[in-house]
Structures are given as structure tokens and as C-alpha cells.
Amino acid sequence: MMEPGAVRADGSRIRVALAVMGLLAVIAPPAAHAYIDPMSGSIVFQVVVAGILGALLTIRRWWDSAVRLVRGVWARVAGR
């Protein structure tokens, strides 16, 4: 479970999002099978944004476990 507020975008992430958006602007949107109209622009946007947020989440988890590992090792070394 991720703590709330963990996924946040800063200026550089936004620039990345903008770049990907620009790239996608030349690709046409997918058809969505739903009774509400999700709007193709919303689907394309969601796929990009969620992809970035998901990647950030993965990186954060790696980072957190790396930090935990280093801390654990350090605690053992320091405890000796």
C-alpha cells in the first residue's frame, strides 16, 4: 500500500509528460467499449499519465527497499 501523496509530479516530470503528450498527438486514439463516453483524448492521456505515475511508483518502491537495505546493513555494522 502506498502512502497518500506519494505520487506527485514536479516540474521535470511535467515536462516529460508534455513531451509524451506531444508524441501521442500524432497518433490517433483507441476505441473504448463503454456505455459512458470516456473520450479518446481522456483515454490516451490516462494511459500516458498512469504509465508515468506507475513507473514513479515502481522507482519509489525500489528506492525505498534500497534505503531500507542500506539502513539495515549500516545498523548492523554500527551495532557491532
Partner: peptide
């Protein structure tokens, strides 16, 4: 329109 479960959760 394809995205991973992790992306959706994020």
C-alpha cells in the same frame, strides 16, 4: 489504450 494494472493503481 492498454495500461498495466500497476499504472491503473497509481
Amino acid at each position: 489504450g492498454s495500461m498495466t494494472p500497476r499504472a491503473l493503481l497509481a
